[in-house]
Design a protein around this nucleic acid. Structure first.
Lengths: 332, 332
DNA sequence: GTCGTTTGTGTAATCGTTTGCACAACGATA
DNA sequence: TATCGTTGTGCAAACGATTACACAAACGAC
């Protein structure tokens, strides 16, 4: 009990101490197994005394279930992801599942990273990152049936996925802005290679097309505040747009700051700025961003829903679609 | 190789396919073991063909090393933690260590959560959260020798720790503000129960004392923007302070917004506001916060340094102290 | 009192690796 | 040629749990 004893006691040793077999120890710790309640109580008491807990590694080896979940994300530093990750981790913990975090953004060899995680026989995989190809993920985790958090319908029939659709919400935002008399739109992308970003852009481009409009200018950042700031400065110097649709909220805040500080333009009069994500910070008084917002709670509920179906043995694949709705702030 | 095969191939099966024993398979995958290079190449080729990778769970059971690291944090949603966590996860991944994330903030039974993680025989534990008692952590992870990220010297001699000292930096900030002619200070705490918060407050209180001053008012939030906003409103209504020192940057931004929006006060003329952490957002143009800042890179380097010493067999305990320095913004 | 069922426990195999030991083959040395 | 060290490989025993199977005791029904 005091922290001095460095070795963990095993079930066999505990068995000797309690005068039973190690099988009985195991049964004392697995609810619903045939064991006398007196024996169980005695074992649990002795176990507490000696600080025994079953070894999850050994258990996993035998069970073929690890209760580990791989979370493949771009980064945790970026608030739009962090909020969702927080919700998901909370839900997993409540189900006695432990998350192993894989951050792709700053890792040179993402496939190797995923392969490493897959050797831990994770029970579930949730892929948030758009920096890995879906097919690679499916190949590497072929024993696990991953959940792809996707923005578009997948070609692969074998994979559960959560689809996010912002077409309608983007339409409402464009309608309002056009109604306010603005016509000259720019799109500030997150990353060139990101298919999520391409899709987000398409929602707005399609909405513009219905008004006979199109993006007049394009810029590419990296989802960070700094890139939003810098690209907005360049963009506003080289073209006369009066609306910037941004790939996420953080870049939108950067663009707003750039417009105000460097160009002396105010939102929404001089320039309208729109974000995407609906992170908490967007609603802060200092930001009050107009943004195409996703209900993060519903999103993570959907992920957990799929995990639970997989756990229940119904491996699917399952698909759930969520829609985005506008949050109206003072920037557009 | 195609994703259809649901079962993973074992070393014994691969051994049969390659015409060797499973011991040889194992040796092919552990660098530095006695094996003919021709055999190794052949095995690796066959392994690639059948998609074999050694099972990390079985390996951990045998080795008594899991290469898993438990990260005990309050939350990932809060930017001040997320930035550090991002850095740490990156460094762990580079060393082929995988992080298991434990979020304490929203979990009702944190001890049970830590116990669950400890059954996975993690090789290292890093405790960032101030919501768990150090002694509990040491008891639960008694086989692991945890690293406590601490703001004060520990009583327990058996634990490696990183100590953070902001006394000098806080002194510089107070000197400057007092030099600017302000005298009436309030402290906006993160949490009542947090000992980290108590210590941060003490740095500033001590600095004030050297000027013959003390905090005139106190408020308690929860490290969130909303709590910073709300508590600042209440605080400024009930007392005439002209400086608010906040427990972290996010609350400082909330307080600044409250002062500006609800009270119509500007920083730093009407009221000075100081944060703590030095998160990236503090330097954003829209915030430009004066804050007592910690070098997050040096911080995580220190954590990894201790982990590496533990891995090398030098279990310490080790102690490293870091100091905080002011970041001068426009809010104080 | 016998039979059948239920209940509680132990024995031993299993999960997929790693690794100490034994041993054969080989080249170098005397 | 006999001896020795080196190298490459297999055998089998861990690692610490879970669980199918077997069996003894207890119980109820007749």
């Amino acid at each position: 009990m005091s922290g001095t004893n460095r070795r963990r006691i095993t079930s066999k040793e505990l068995a000797k101490l309690a005068g039973v077999s190690s099988a009985t120890i195991s049964r004392a710790f697995s609810p619903g197994s045939r064991i006398g309640s007196a024996t169980r109580d005695r074992i649990l008491a002795v176990a507490r005394e000696y600080g025994y807990q079953p070894n999850a590694i050994a258990r996993s080896l035998n069970n073929q279930r690890s209760r580990l979940v791989a979370l493949v994300v771009n980064a945790i530093g970026n608030p739009c992801e962090a909020e969702e990750q927080q919700l998901l981790v909370h839900r997993l913990q409540a189900r006695q599942l432990l998350p192993i975090l894989l951050c792709c953004a700053d890792h040179s060899d993402r496939l190797q990273l995923m392969r490493l995680a897959s050797t831990y026989q994770v029970d579930h995989v949730v892929i948030f990152s758009d920096m890995v190809s879906m097919q690679d993920a499916v190949d590497i985790f072929h024993t696990t049936r991953p959940i792809i958090v996707s923005f578009e319908p997948l070609g692969n029939e074998d994979v559960s996925n959560i689809r996010i659709d912002g077409a309608v919400g983007a339409g409402e935002i464009i309608d309002k802005i056009v109604g306010d008399g603005k016509k000259r739109f720019a799109y500030l992308s997150g990353t060139k290679s990101s298919w999520i970003d391409k899709l987000r852009r398409k929602w707005f481009a399609d909405a513009l097309a219905r008004h006979g409009l199109a993006f007049e200018a394009e810029a590419f950042g990296d989802y960070s505040y700094d890139s939003g700031f810098k690209e907005a400065v360049l963009l506003l110097h080289r073209s006369k747009v009066d609306v910037i649709i941004c790939g996420n909220d953080v870049m939108a805040i950067g663009a707003r700051d750039a417009a105000r500080r460097v160009l002396g333009k105010n939102t929404p009069e001089d320039i309208a700025i729109v974000g995407q994500d609906g992170i908490a910070m967007a609603a802060w008084d200092c930001n009050d961003l107009t943004t195409l917002s996703l209900d993060h709670v519903a999103f993570m509920d959907a992920v957990v829903e799929v995990i639970e179906r997989h756990e229940a043995g119904n491996e699917g694949p399952h698909s759930i679609t969520l829609t985005c709705t506008p949050r109206w702030g003072s920037t557009a």
